[in-house]
């Protein structure tokens, strides 16, 4: 039995004038127990919609979805008993109550006894290192502290499947690192637990996930381990170019010139340079690109071949960077 299984899962929304928008289209995924499964995609790709369906907050338009064998539509109550959801950038508690009070409140909703509830609260405060702010109201906490609390709340019922929706969104580097360490620890402590994580941080997905699905416009466009995904572009070459000047549309211009569908560009006003990352089929094509750039009046500062990353896989499949979407 899979921890999560979706079969031809689709979800549409009606927009202006009855126009149908596909948030998810024929999604088929199978997530094994004990896996950290990542769903990678830009904003609006369908990541949160999939989590909402799996967490029983939204019904699918068609298709089936199961969590630990329970149908998310017909057995929603059973699904809710074994899952929990943590969303980045949200506050999943009452600002008028302290961290401790909020956690205790949720232990009671989940049916823990008074004694077990307080024991759980103490355990979670220790696990998340929240001793210093456990007695402070939530509305006085920083974003990082709130996200630690969010994670603690998500662990109250010892969920067998934990959905993490952009868990490091808006966090500073140190807190994000801490959260990632904790996610790994959660799986280590309970090998039966499954973590389903959505993110648009490529490095986070690569670092944490056993397998990754790339979602674009509601469709799963690739699925595999980070290594397997990188092999998808093993026959191709990834080049990094630097051009003097700020050209925000340079990537698009190169695409229009027919060089590659997989180009990302980024301008840095501090250095006055525009960096390009391109997935190309051969060295000759790279030479062609340089010729075209010089011929079009651009000053090429450097060109180098780089190791393919998950970012390049995404670039090739989707045609743009996550942040550009």
């Amino acid at each position: 039995m899979y921890s999560i299984e979706t079969i031809e899962l689709s979800r549409t929304f009606k927009r202006n004038k009855g126009r149908l928008i596909y948030a998810l289209r024929d999604v088929n995924i199978k997530v094994r127990k004990g896996e950290i499964f990542g769903l990678l995609g830009p904003n609006g790709a369908g990541k949160t919609t999939l989590i909402r369906i799996l967490a029983t907050l939204l019904l699918p338009t068609s298709g089936k979805a199961y969590v630990l064998g329970y149908d998310v539509v017909g057995e929603a109550n059973k699904v809710r008993e074994v899952i929990n959801v943590v969303s980045g950038g949200e506050r999943s508690g009452y600002g008028i109550m302290t961290v401790k009070e909020n956690l205790w409140y949720f232990t009671q909703l989940y049916g823990l006894s008074r004694r077990d509830g307080w024991r759980k609260v103490r355990e979670l405060i220790e696990l998340l290192g929240m001793e210093d702010f456990a007695d402070i109201r939530l509305n006085r906490l920083s974003t990082g502290m709130i996200q630690k609390y969010n994670l603690a709340r998500g662990l109250i019922n010892d969920p067998k499947v934990l959905f993490l929706d952009e868990p490091t969104l808006g966090l500073d580097v140190e807190v994000a690192k801490y959260i990632r360490r904790l996610i790994r620890k959660l799986i280590k402590e309970d090998p039966e637990r499954t973590i389903f994580l959505t993110t648009h941080y490529m490095a986070e997905a690569e670092e944490l996930c056993d397998r990754i699905a790339i979602i674009h416009k509601g469709r799963i466009v690739a699925l595999g381990s980070p290594e397997q995904l990188k092999k998808m572009i093993c026959d191709e070459l990834v080049y990094k170019l630097e051009v003097k000047g700020i050209y925000s549309k340079l990537g698009e211009r190169l695409k229009e010139a027919g060089f590659s569908k997989a180009v990302s560009s980024k301008s840095d006003i501090t250095t006055g340079l525009t960096s390009l990352r391109m997935v190309l089929s051969s060295e000759e094509e790279a030479e062609e690109v340089v010729k075209w750039l010089i011929g079009s009046g651009y000053k090429v500062i450097s060109i180098s071949k780089v190791e393919p990353s998950l970012e390049d896989v995404f670039l090739k499949l989707v045609g743009g960077k996550l942040s550009e979407e």
């Binding site: 109550n77 809710r80 929990n84 999943s92 989940y110 709340r153």
Partner: peptide, 13 residues
């Protein structure tokens, strides 16, 4: 106001 309906919804039977 509190934006917690979904968390309460998931936590209570």
């Amino acid at each position: 106001h509190y934006r917690l309906l979904k968390y309460n919804y998931l936590a209570v039977p």
